[in-house]
Each structure stands twice: as C-alpha cells, then as structure tokens.
C-alpha cells in the first residue's frame, strides 16, 4: 500500500502552548486511519492545520505524491481532501439537497454569464449537480429528506448530510472530526456501517474519534496523540496494549 497523505514534522503553537509537536504520520491509500487521544491532545488542531483553517508553524504535507498546499481551505478541498466538523456546520437554512449541491461547487464551472444566459451547457451542468446530490443523499441514507431544511433534520441525519456534502467535493481522503459525538448506540452503529462502506467503495478515511470502541473496531491503523505528540502509530490490537497509550488514557478508557 502506498501512502496517500504524509504529514511531516507538523508543529503548531498557540501563544505558549505547543498544540502540535513535530507530528509525522502517513495514511495509506484505501485504509481507515484513526487519530485518537485524550481531550486537548491536538487532534482537532491537526485537522484544522491539514484542512487549511490554521497555518502550521512548521512541517509540510504531501498528498498523492505531490506537495499539498494548505494555505487556504478551498485549495485543500480542491486537492481532494474533504472534511466534516466536530460541531456540525451545515448551511442551516438551505435544504438538504442544496447543501450537497454546494459541495459540487468545486467540481463545476458555471459562472455569472452561464447563470444569466442559462445556456445548454449550464442547464446540463445544473441537472448533473442535482442528480449527483440526490444520489449522495441516497448513498448516506437520507434520500427522502432532500427538501427539508438542514436545520430540521435529526442530529444523526445532520451528520449524514455533512458527510454527503463532503463526498460531493469528490475527495480521495475524507476527514471526519468526531462523527459519533453525541450519537446514541443505534446511530453509532449505523455510522460505523456507513464509514465501512466508504472504505469498501475505495475511499481513504481519516477518523478523529473519542469513541475508542468505534475506532478500534473500524480502523485499519490508529495513531495516538498526547500533549501534541504522536506516541504511537500501529494496528489497533497493538495500540490497545501499548503502555504509553494506557498511561495517556489513565488506564481505564481503553476497551
């Protein structure tokens, strides 16, 4: 398996706090890669650096064999990395379908002139956007909710919608920031199936998660961050028994 994403020596400070210290990791094509760690370990910071929301102080990324420009979020998305947010960020007053259609922005072209003239090419593109968006809603299992406003969806469905919107950008790597947060057991189970299905369909997934059981059950490999440092990167079975990891989690939490 070749590496799809490589992070090399990523560092980030906030004032006096070193949120990330020389973090290097490598995500292989087609795997589900888990990033775990106690609260404040730097997981979300890593995500935000990777997706261009924060500027890193040191280090660089390479994606699919090429250097990855993380200077702006839309460039990261264009390169083929899509993300979701820990505290769901949907376009609350747009319909579910429109949310996913916005995700197609990156892969479509129509500009002002096309929009005004509404010529053959624009109409075709618009129809394709809608078709694809609907497909994705069905794919994540909320095909019947297309006309509902995003804010009216249930919590679990909002998570799914966010994933559908991310998928609409045609990513090669999907980065999920605590997708199971706030979910009940049934919802988590369904989510596990969805993510597993994504991998089976050829997508690479980077998963930040608090729910250690979900990570251990789903991920091919796991890295653990503690105080901004990567303390291990290995298959779940070995991570689970690693003394450093157990210490980081104060013993108990690892299932």
């Amino acid at each position: 398996m070749s590496a799809l994403l490589e992070a090399i020596g990523i560092g980030k400070r906030f004032g006096g706090v070193e949120a990330l210290k020389d973090v290097s990791l490598s995500i292989a094509q087609g795997e589900i890669y888990g990033l775990i760690g106690p609260n404040g370990a730097g997981k979300t910071t890593f995500f935000n650096v990777l997706t261009g929301l924060y500027a890193a102080d040191s280090g660089h990324f390479s994606f699919a064999g090429k250097p990855l420009d993380v200077s702006a979020p839309h460039l990261v998305a264009a390169a083929g990395i899509a993300r979701t947010f820990q505290n769901i960020r949907l376009f609350a007053n747009m319909s579910a379908l429109e949310n996913v259609m916005v995700g197609r922005h990156l892969r479509t072209r129509a500009g002002v002139i096309g929009a005004v003239l509404r010529n053959e090419a624009t109409r075709r593109e618009e129809a394709a956007i809608e078709r694809r968006a609907l497909e994705l809603l069905h794919y994540v299992g909320i095909g019947s909710r297309g006309n509902d406003l995003a804010r009216h969806l249930s919590y679990g469905d909002q998570r799914r919608l966010e994933i559908a919107r991310a998928l609409a950008t045609e990513p090669r790597l999907l980065a999920l920031d605590e997708p199971a947060a706030g979910m009940n057991g049934t919802e988590t189970g369904a989510l596990r199936q969805l993510i597993g299905g994504l991998r089976d369909d050829g997508l690479t997934v980077l998963l930040i998660e608090h729910d250690v059981k979900l990570v251990m059950g789903l991920c091919d490999r796991v890295a653990v961050l503690d105080y901004g440092e990567k303390i291990i990167e290995d298959v779940p079975a070995r991570v689970r028994r690693d003394p450093k990891v157990i210490e980081a989690y104060l013993g108990g939490a690892i299932a």
């Binding site: 947010f85 747009m94 916005v102 922005h105």
Partner: peptide, 17 residues
Amino acid sequence: RAWVAIREDEIAAKACG
C-alpha cells in the same frame, strides 16, 4: 448557492472548496 452558503456559514463554505 455559493453566496448563500457564505452567508450561512463561511467556514463550512470554505471547507466545501
């Protein structure tokens, strides 16, 4: 749609590319 997306949530709009 892109305009409205920005009005609704600028960071999410950025993340959508």
